[in-house]
């Protein structure tokens, strides 16, 4: 009467820890019959609608689950029920087939690399225009306020020096076709930042007294620095960096969310390096913007290289060339590399 062969295994009623040695057979119409193999009494019967098969996992027996919560587990872990559909076995087949494993070993890192390096920045750029200006203004104002309270002091430059910087600033704003229109330049003295300049997402640009003094003989270099900062705002780099870092954090969280013990820390340092890499990309973008706009204003792109050289010679006292390890933790590209890049644009 039974079309399929009898399967030996163990049976348990719903929510019951009592084990029965049992035999499962199927009638022609798919009716499941489970009998106790010790005394050959019936344990249960079920129509095809009332039983189903558990997941097929390599190395484990496939259990037979009944609607009421009873289970039957074959003794042989390699046994696969003839009724199992092809799709039910697909995952396990892929997981134990040499070819698919090899393909996964090769493709997983490549795809992961592509997602982080190409897809994330692309999606981030696409998402940035969706961020309303009011959000960027909030971001800028809050950060600016915090910095004013902590790291910035009123400028001590002479009115003439201030006017010279403002002149370059106004010239850049008036002559360049900029997309964003609420730029504001501030001069501050800062012991914390030293010779530096930075831009906030709302168009606030700050250049420090120390940097203006450092570049006082090279007016075009100051212009180049200001253009670099405008490049950050035009490229909406703050918002893009947030979007990219969020994307990367989610990718790692979902794919490797359950790391082995202290490998957790390792993933943490990995994401710091990744964020630094994103940041370096944006610095290069802003450098490129500055060089292009210098040309548009009829200035020599080497002005940017001059600014970088001045910064480099000022810092070289405490920076003995960047080692390979520290390079990956830096938020900015190597300064010599940036000078090289700018010089390449020099007219021969």
């Amino acid at each position: 009467m039974s079309a399929s062969p009898a399967v030996n295994g163990q049976f348990q009623h719903a929510g019951s820890s009592t084990l029965y040695r049992a035999v499962a057979t199927f009638a022609d119409n798919g009716q499941l019959i489970i009998r106790n193999s010790d005394n050959d009494t019936a344990l249960t019967e079920a129509t095809p609608a009332d039983y189903r098969f558990g997941s097929v996992i390599p190395g484990l027996a496939v259990e037979l689950q009944l609607r009421d919560g009873a289970i039957f587990v074959p003794d042989n872990p390699r046994f696969r029920w003839p009724q199992l559909s092809g799709t039910a076995k697909t995952a396990a087949r892929l997981e134990s087939h040499k070819l698919s494993i090899l393909a996964a070993v090769v493709l997983s890192p490549l795809l992961l690399w592509w997602i982080i390096v190409d897809l994330m920045p692309m999606l981030a750029s696409a998402a940035v225009p969706l961020v309303p200006d009011s959000v960027k203004q909030q971001m800028g104002q809050q950060t600016f306020y915090t910095l004013q309270q902590t790291a910035l002091q009123p400028t001590e430059l002479t009115p003439a020096q201030q006017a010279a910087v403002q002149y370059h600033w106004q010239m850049a704003l008036q002559k360049l076709p900029l997309e964003y229109n609420s730029y504001k330049l501030h001069l501050y003295k800062s012991d914390f930042f030293g010779a530096n300049a930075f831009a906030l997402p709302d168009g606030t640009v700050v250049i420090t007294d120390e940097l203006v003094t450092l570049l006082k003989d090279k007016p075009d270099a100051i212009l180049a620095v200001l253009l670099h900062e405008i490049g950050h705002v035009e490229g909406q780099h703050s918002v893009r960096l947030i979007a990219q870092s969020l994307g990367a954090a989610l990718v790692f969280g979902i794919l490797f969310g359950d790391p082995e013990g202290i490998a957790d820390l390792l993933l943490g340092s990995g994401s710091v390096m990744l964020q630094s890499a994103f940041s370096r990309d944006m610095e290069r973008e802003a450098d490129k913007f500055a060089v292009e706009q210098l040309k548009a204003l009829g200035k020599s792109p080497s002005a940017f290289a001059d600014a970088m050289s001045a910064l480099l010679s000022e810092r070289s006292t405490d920076d003995q060339g960047s080692s390979t390890l520290l390079k990956y933790l830096s938020t900015h590209p190597d300064t010599r590399e940036r000078i090289e890049q700018a010089r390449q644009h020099d007219p021969p």
Partner: peptide, 27 residues
């Protein structure tokens, strides 16, 4: 045996933009 399960599930999770990771966790 688990290496095969892990790496294939990882690839499927990447390809499905993380959706398959739920299946991967259960398996």
């Amino acid at each position: 045996e688990f290496f095969g399960i892990w790496i294939v599930n990882l690839l499927l999770s990447i390809v499905t933009l993380g959706i398959y990771s739920a299946w991967a966790k259960v398996r």
